[in-house]
């Protein structure tokens, strides 16, 4: 037995373990759909309410062939991505302003707490009246739901950057802007990325609720429309599509994380 041989065996074991995990993950997925289908066709559950994978699939095929589903997906995806980027970006900028003016941050502290604990979706009706019943309101909903929590989390991270890094920069006569650019911001990248991950989920909530309220297009609209005409195939299909795209967005953020934070 030499080391090379042992290493080969070790790698083989790892690969085997990974294969088994993948297998069970797949089994769970297939099992879920098979159980759902069987339960529905045998009327263990009410197919009118819980639909079934085959019905959903047929509906999806119909909507793909007439192209309507793409319009809805496009619409919602655009709103969500924009709301998500705006929410994080504005949150970061606000955090920077608070860091820059410590007195301002002390003054605003209680208001941030109030704004953060308030359910932002409750602002929906006001937004719609103020911005009109259209895409602008929905994107604003997607952004507003994540902006305050992003501000708070990122500002906390700005403040927790080790003061000795700033001391090093100070001995080089760095300006405040240089301290922000060289130390504060890059040291907080991991935090900003993790708020991005949280914001993926939050923006979907904002956008879907926004579409519930006003839209005549999009996946949120399909859900509320399906509910109104009691077409639960439509509701569950939209839900599955949202699950797929929300996961994809999350994966994209993780890829971004790996590229940006290679020095940890």
């Amino acid at each position: 037995m030499n080391i090379k041989e042992l290493h080969r065996q070790y790698k083989k074991r790892l690969a085997k373990e990974k294969r088994w995990i993948r297998f069970y993950q797949l089994l769970l997925l297939i099992g879920f759909f098979v159980l759902w289908e069987t339960a529905s066709s045998n009327r263990w559950i009410d197919p009118l309410i819980f639909s079934s994978p085959s019905r959903i699939f047929r509906l999806l095929m119909d909507m793909i062939s007439d192209g309507t589903i793409f319009i809805h997906i496009n619409y919602t995806l655009f709103e969500t991505v924009l709301g998500f980027i705006l929410g994080t970006l504005i949150g970061t900028i606000l955090a920077a302003i608070l860091w820059w003016f410590p007195t301002l941050s002390k003054i605003l502290d209680p208001y941030l707490v109030v704004l953060n604990s308030m359910p932002k979706v409750a602002l929906g009706p006001i937004l719609i009246v103020a911005l009109g019943p259209g895409m602008t309101s929905i994107i604003t909903m997607g952004a507003i739901i994540s902006v305050i929590i992003s501000t708070i989390v990122i500002y906390t991270s700005f403040r927790n950057v080790d003061a000795n890094y700033l001391k090093v920069l100070q001995t080089f006569n760095a300006t405040k802007w240089q301290m922000f650019k060289e130390a504060i911001l890059p040291a907080s990248f991991p935090t900003i990325i993790s708020t991005l991950k949280v914001n993926v989920g939050l923006s979907w909530v904002g956008v879907i609720v926004g579409e519930f309220l006003v839209s005549s297009q999009g996946l949120g609209y399909l859900i509320i429309y399906g509910f109104q005409v009691f077409n639960f195939n439509l509701v569950l299909m939209s839900l599955l599509i949202i699950a797929v795209f929300a996961t994809l967005m999350y994966q994209l953020v993780e890829m971004l994380e790996k590229r940006l934070i290679k020095n940890e």
Partner: peptide
């Protein structure tokens, strides 16, 4: 210009060694 060395190195982990060394020169 004053040189200050701390208990720990406080090299910036996201900068290469070269960028760390030339940091002061760039700032000044």
């Amino acid at each position: 210009s004053i040189g200050y060395m701390l208990q720990q190195d406080y090299l910036f982990p996201w900068k290469t060694i070269e960028e760390n060394i030339t940091l002061g020169l760039r700032l000044l």
